[in-house]
Write a protein that binds this DNA or RNA. Structure first.
Lengths: 125, 125
DNA sequence: TGCTGATATGCAGGCGGGTCGATGCTGCTG
DNA sequence: CAGCAGCATCGACCCGCCTGCATATCAGCA
């Protein structure tokens, strides 16, 4: 498909220049928008929240369907988008697929939005 | 229209519980998603960036149309969405409409995303 | 007052995306 | 080796939204 395309991961989101500073370039804007688009959905925000607060910090699809009130295919769909955005990682154990947050992925996004701080990123070029 | 409806402003975004902690509630997820949806667009990210880096931290529509490569009505449309989301404020001086960032609006969003930190927000209720 | 320029709004076209039901796949189990 | 349970994928529907063109508003000016 053609969603985000692992924006955060291989797109190397950390290279996206922050919102602050000089005007953001077109490409950066599109990458950042891609990741934010993955976040900008109630169901997906709740998924992240549910997974993050789960016992081992992980959860399988069957645990997430009920709380969200969405069908299993729809939940899998959202999990896929979050995974491809680099926000979740998937591990299949037996019949179950366990999802957990990618350590500092969300924090990285927050840093890109936050203007003046310890940002170590050199926007190079 | 029926977009975000001044999500950040009167919706009092600061009352939205952060992503971290206990599972976020449906209403909070929708409010946060609403604001993020306003951010999750390349054109709007560039608008925020352009305005923020403008001389006086403000810019009028006529200054933003060219850099974006979008029509004037489209730019006005995006500015409206950002304004209604509580990210921009508008001031009309004469024939021109000047837009500037709402001081700590974006930072507030970043805080809601960032998990464990100085968050002072008491989720009350 | 009438004209011009800066913005906002209405309208419409086209695409992207959220959702579900049906189906395919794959390990586990009897 | 059937049968079943957990997930992913497919196809389809429908709504939301980005965009531009046309038009309405409104302020400044001759």
């Amino acid at each position: 498909m053609e969603y985000v395309g692992t924006a955060l991961a291989e797109m190397t989101m950390p290279q996206i220049s922050p919102l602050a500073g000089e005007p953001i370039e077109r490409a950066d804007a599109e990458r950042l928008a891609g990741v934010l688009k993955a976040l900008a959905d109630p169901a997906r925000l709740r998924l992240l929240s549910l997974i993050q607060s789960a016992p081992e910090g992980e959860a399988c699809v069957c645990d997430l369907t009920a709380p969200l009130g969405l069908s299993q295919p729809t939940v899998s769909h959202h999990l896929r988008i979050l995974t491809e955005a680099g926000l979740l990682e998937r591990e299949k154990r037996g019949v179950w697929a366990y999802y957990r947050l990618v350590p500092s992925a969300i924090a990285t996004i927050a840093d890109l939005l936050t203007p003046p701080r310890k940002r170590a990123t050199k926007k190079a070029r």
